[in-house]
Simulated assay, not measured.
Amino acid sequence: MGVYKRLSDVPDRYRLHHHANAYEGRDVWDEFLTEHLFPRFDSDRFKEDARRAGRYWKEHMAERGRHHALATPADVETWMTDLLDRLKLKTAYNSYWVRVERFYHWLQWHTEHPHTHHPVLMAAADGGAAGKVWDEKMARRRGGSKR
Rank of each mutant, 00 (worst) to 15 (best):
R66E: 02
K5C: 05
A92C: 07
H110R: 13
L83Q: 13
H110K: 09
D85A: 15
A22F: 00
E136P: 03
A62L: 00
S43F: 01
L121H: 13
R26L: 06
M1S: 14
T91S: 11
M122A: 14
R52E: 11
M138H: 07
A22R: 11
R52A: 13
R64C: 07
A50P: 02
H60N: 03
R26Q: 06
R147T: 09
V98Q: 11
Y14M: 06
H113A: 01
R64I: 02
P39T: 11
A69V: 01
H60F: 05
L121K: 14
D49A: 15
Y23W: 08
A129R: 09
Q108E: 11
A22T: 06
R142L: 13
P73Y: 04
R66M: 01
D44E: 15
D135N: 15
T116N: 00
G2I: 02
L7Q: 05
P39V: 04
L121D: 10
M138E: 15
V98W: 01
Q108C: 06
A125R: 15
R6Y: 08
T81F: 13
Y4K: 01
E101D: 13
F41C: 10
R51C: 06
K58F: 00
G144P: 02
K5D: 08
K58W: 00
E24H: 04
T78N: 04
W57V: 07
L37I: 08
L7P: 00
T91H: 10
S145C: 03
N94H: 10
F41A: 13
K88R: 15
V10D: 01
T34L: 03
V100W: 08
A130P: 14
Y14W: 03
L37V: 10
A20M: 06
D75I: 06
M1T: 12
A22G: 13
Y96K: 09
P119I: 01
E31S: 09
F41R: 15
M138T: 12
T34D: 12
E63W: 02
E48G: 03
F103P: 04
R142T: 09
D75R: 08
L33E: 07
R13H: 09
Q108L: 07
P73T: 08
A62I: 01
L70D: 02
P114F: 02
N21S: 15
A139M: 04
G127K: 10
W29S: 01
E136R: 13
Y104Q: 04
H105D: 14
M61P: 01
G2S: 10
M80W: 12
H18T: 06
V98S: 10
M1Y: 03
W29N: 00
